[in-house]
């Protein structure tokens, strides 16, 4: 019970955007002119913008992790390993809150944007399509805020990440989180959710696709391109 309260409190304290606000604004979409303006941006500028938004979201995930009972008791190597491997996955899970499945738009820089707004990302268009498909499938599960909170914690605290120094300790923390999640689902009669969650490999594949696209971008541009990207983004993905 205590752990559940801690997960929910940590999630609420570090949530970037409130669910009520996202819901209230879900039909506030970019105009045709605004979409065209985004499409006219250079590929480099659009990548930088997206990297900036991803980095902001990841900073909130780091704060979430720091508040999770037991996370800061893991050794420093393992804290970094878990965040490096899981932060982007958590951001993708959170995206289902900021996604309107009725018109396939996502909250981006103040309004809801369709996939076409990201056209200037160039070859990363496939990635955008896959991310939108993932958000759509997660939205279909209609997860509550407490469920998203637990899913975030469970994505992060994963004992099978490579390079962990104390996987047993991580595994123990994960087991407690799983028990808390099961109790929550039982209480809300949502046990069926566990069987309907997308396989873990799907998140991993999306993250690999993101890194591959970034590598392809680097191959096509001078190394100075990355200087304009947020340092945390470079540290995690470059």
């Amino acid at each position: 019970e205590q752990l559940t309260q801690n997960v929910l409190k940590s999630y609420h304290e570090t949530c970037q955007l409130r669910a009520e606000d996202l819901q209230r604004r879900r039909w506030d979409t970019f105009s045709r002119e605004e979409i065209c303006a985004y499409q006219k941006k250079s590929m480099e500028e659009m990548w930088q913008r997206c990297a900036g938004r991803i980095t902001e979201a990841i900073q909130h995930v780091v704060e979430f992790a720091k508040r999770l009972h037991g996370f800061m008791e893991l050794c420093q190597n393992d804290q970094i390993v878990l965040l490096k491997a899981g932060a982007m996955e958590v951001v993708l899970v959170h995206m289902c809150r900021a996604f309107n499945a009725d018109n396939r738009t996502v909250f981006f820089e103040g309004k809801y944007a369709s996939a076409e707004l990201f056209r200037s990302l160039g070859r990363a268009e496939d990635l955008i399509g896959s991310i939108f498909d993932f958000a759509q499938s997660l939205c279909a599960l209609q997860c509550s805020e407490p469920e998203v909170a637990f899913l975030s914690a469970l994505v992060l605290v994963n004992a099978s990440r490579p390079w962990l120094q104390e996987p047993v300790k991580v595994s123990r923390l994960r087991r407690r989180l799983e028990l808390g999640f099961q109790l929550l689902l039982r209480r809300t009669r949502r046990e069926g959710l566990l069987d309907r969650l997308p396989p873990q490999g799907r998140l991993r594949a999306l993250c690999s696709q993101h890194v591959e696209q970034l590598q392809a971008l680097r191959r096509r541009h001078p190394p100075a391109l990355l200087d304009a990207f947020p340092p945390l983004y470079r540290e995690l993905f470059a």
Binding site: Q59, V62, E63, K66, R67, M72, Q76, N77, Q79, I80, L83, K84, P231, L232, E235, L236
Partner: peptide
């Protein structure tokens, strides 16, 4: 840790 200086710093920075 050297490779993850920023992440390391964020983790060290209190609970804010």
């Amino acid at each position: 840790q050297e490779k993850h200086r920023i992440l390391h710093k964020l983790l060290q920075n209190g609970n804010s």
